[in-house]
Design a protein around this nucleic acid. Sequence first.
DNA 1: CGGATCGTTGACAGGTATCAATGCTGGTGG
DNA 2: CCACCAGCATTGATACCTGTCAACGATCCG
Lengths: 235, 235
Amino acid sequence: MKAIEITQAWNGTEKCQQCPIRDLVLFADLKEDDFRLLHLPINDLELDKGSILYEQKDEINFVYTIRSGLVKLVRYLPNGSYRIIRLLRQGDLAGIEALNGSAYLHHAIAMQSTSVCQIPVKNIEQLNSHSSHLYRQLTARWQKVQSEADIWLADLTMGSSRSRVANLLIYLADSRPDESFYLPSREDIGALLAITTETASRIIAEFKRAGALNTLRHTAKIDKIKLRHFQQKGD
Amino acid sequence: MKAIEITQAWNGTEKCQQCPIRDLVLFADLKEDDFRLLHLPINDLELDKGSILYEQKDEINFVYTIRSGLVKLVRYLPNGSYRIIRLLRQGDLAGIEALNGSAYLHHAIAMQSTSVCQIPVKNIEQLNSHSSHLYRQLTARWQKVQSEADIWLADLTMGSSRSRVANLLIYLADSRPDESFYLPSREDIGALLAITTETASRIIAEFKRAGALNTLRHTAKIDKIKLRHFQQKGD
DNA sequence: CGGATCGTTGACAGGTATCAATGCTGGTGG
DNA sequence: CCACCAGCATTGATACCTGTCAACGATCCG
């Protein structure tokens, strides 16, 4: 049994060391010695659209690195409504609050097919007590989350609904080689921008008619030039 | 000259070890040995209302701990408008982005008389290379910022203006012994909640008329019971 | 094919921004 | 000490935007 665990751990770390997005992930600058400290297996998970990584009240055991796909962090409010707090993409961490806090702060749900690495919290704690490499990555990642949240707050919660939707589309298309991206449902767009589904639908439809947005199923492309006309209110 | 600097450093650390809010601040669980590593002076600054701690483009040299008062983090947008991204209060850190990034992400401005500790970034870096105590505090603080930003996003950027203002007032009054607090200018309230100054003014005036809010100059107290009627839209 | 879910569109009411005018207050200098 | 000024706060009128309620069309999947 122990042998199996060790083997799994080694598989895990082997995979980590060969990881194609290694420079993006939490373990970016771990040394070989550090990898020997990983005693629990790191699992690869493939998630279908709608799968739940964790829920707010779940017991805390894992942190997740997004390898590909898109994950939404959802917070339910006392009155029953909810809001999408943030989107996570390749290289982002989900559930880091597990390292300091006592419970997950959101529900994490895959918005499309998504693959993640599931990292036991105990691994992180063990590494942290032996090396400061990981702490550096953790603080760096936290800062990234924070600065992106700030930009989010500035771009996606002010101005008219039209400009907020335009900014969201630009954000989604951003850092995509061919600029094609997954267009969320109208309800999700509403929950992201604090507008109603109907308003989201009207605006998306308007963008399509204006030729600023083209969709095939849930895959979308934007015409950035045309879309910019909607970024600021009025024109 | 060197002697003076060392003396100053010792003054600084002496003060830190006796700091009345030490359990709240970054250096909470440093040991005596750690304090010996601080070679640059930590200064106490008293800031008047409107003073600027740092600006977005400033060179990065310091991190600040708020000892008392209120600081706003302001982000200017390309189109010239701006938004208050976050408020900082006792025990909060300003400018942590200086530790990983290359520039400050906001302007930090005192909203009332404020006292802060000015900590050279080099001190932090030095401590980090010798001990992981500080990293633990840093990650903990980052998480706090993040989770508060999330709540902020949920409470202060959705719903009617009336409920947003009500939530802001409750947030400001929160964790105050006598629940009396500094009431920001209508313009600042607008920048905090992404509403216009006129709307902010109308709602504040309405709350006053309803007896849910009392002010004397810029000092305010709320009647939480009455204010709750405004939290949800409609009633 | 049919039902369920999601997206689109319309009509209307209420909320908010905008433009504009007036009242209020704190600070300054005579 | 007082008068005045500049900035802030309040209030009104109006147009526009968005939420709400409702109906209908499109798409997905069994």
